[in-house]
Design a protein around this nucleic acid. Structure first.
Lengths: 218, 218
DNA sequence: TTTTCCTTTCTTGTATACACTGAGTGTTGA
DNA sequence: TCAACACTCAGTGTATACAAGAAAGGAAAA
């Protein structure tokens, strides 16, 4: 693997996992020594991160990890609604109904997963991943896919701020089942509506986490 | 100005103006000599172009300017509808009505512009630009703005394939007036609907250009 | 004659040295 | 004591040399 690729993947993971929290200054020599590559591939990695909006220039001197807090959740979810509703609509028009009715079934019977142990919860998350993948493939639009991917990087980062609980996961599973069902039925409008509902519920849950944190802190 | 910035801007313009058409191979030494910079800043420029989807790796040997033809218009406009409808909705909720009712008036009286000479047509295009800018500012969402900007790069490129005529420009002006009016009225749903109408008309016009070209070629 | 393998050469990937800019600090004058 | 100027230095921006890898061409064998 190329050195620039290794540096990029390492930095990306460090940022997404909050090991490099917002505001962290990324000096070139420092990071190149830490990652064991020279400055040239490191600069390429930093350039890719900047293009994704994960880093930003810092008063003319170096780059910093961009701010991200629950304050950004509203903006992020507005974009997410635009992209994912469109994606669900297109999938409803173009996807294979069998794939999505199968996914719907799995989500409907996901109650056992979200109440189980960590491994079972991992299974649930991979099920969500499979629905996303199926939509990505069915919508058959490379530009929309590209936009979604760059959005998801930020979503991964912000998701770490939320604590999920069994009740929310169960509700989420039902919402996902509805989305899959609407796509399987070929109903574009319903698929978009189900996605809107799901995203609003997710956002509300995310914000309720914030209130808890504020109360805990005070 | 930095050498990498110059190289980036020059290559960007060359690609958008079709001086570097799709499929053109961009060899590093060749381009660095052409632009009078060394390979290091040139590589940074190429990296930025690749992040925007304007270039893509070419079977292990250099990068090529990505394909773009009217075949991509459908995909591009699907993403555009998702983003611009959302943008118009948000602007309707958050924008200053006075700004948009002023823009509506200007679009309504734009008939004299589109029938005029080249300079007058330039005025019309800058009016469209002002509406876009007003929406960008009013929607107040940096993530959505970022997505829109990366989309617009491709739209600039594909717009060169379309020939505009006075009838289309006049209709376009009316459609823009409707969008501005809906935003001024604070009607998010109507603003989105007007945007959908406008984009469908634009896409149809773009495709009719294609048919003419095909008939001309045969 | 065709296919396969080897060699050559061109292009990219990486490291490093040097130049330049900008921020911080210390000193000097009012 | 404060402000302004100059100097230092850390850190980025650029150039270039070198290494590694892939494609193309030719030669040899089937």
């Amino acid at each position: 693997m190329r050195a620039s690729e290794r540096a990029y993947l390492t930095l990306l993971e460090d940022i997404l996992e909050w090991r490099l929290p917002p505001g962290t200054v990324l000096a070139e020599v420092e990071q190149s020594e830490r990652l064991g590559v020279s400055r040239t591939p490191l600069r390429e990695a930093l350039g890719r991160l900047a293009a994704e909006g994960l880093t930003a220039p810092h008063s003319g001197r170096g780059v910093v990890v961009t701010e991200l807090s629950l304050d950004h959740a509203d903006e992020l979810f507005e974009l997410r609604e635009a992209l994912e509703c469109k994606a669900a609509s297109l999938a409803a028009r173009r996807g294979n109904p069998l794939v999505f009715s199968q996914l719907q079934k799995e989500f409907s019977s996901a109650a056992v997963l979200v109440n189980g142990d960590e491994a079972a919860k991992g299974n649930y998350y991979s099920l969500v991943q499979r629905l996303d993948d199926a939509i990505d493939q069915s919508m058959d639009n490379s530009y929309l896919l590209q936009s979604l991917k760059s959005l998801r990087v930020h979503l991964v980062r912000i998701r770490r701020l939320a604590k999920d609980n069994p009740e929310r996961l169960l509700a989420s599973a039902m919402e996902h089942a509805n989305i899959a069902g609407a796509i399987a039925a070929g109903d574009a409008q319903l698929a978009a509506a189900c996605t809107t509902v799901h995203l609003n519920q997710s956002l509300n849950h995310l914000k309720s986490t914030q209130h808890q944190t504020e109360r805990t802190a005070s």
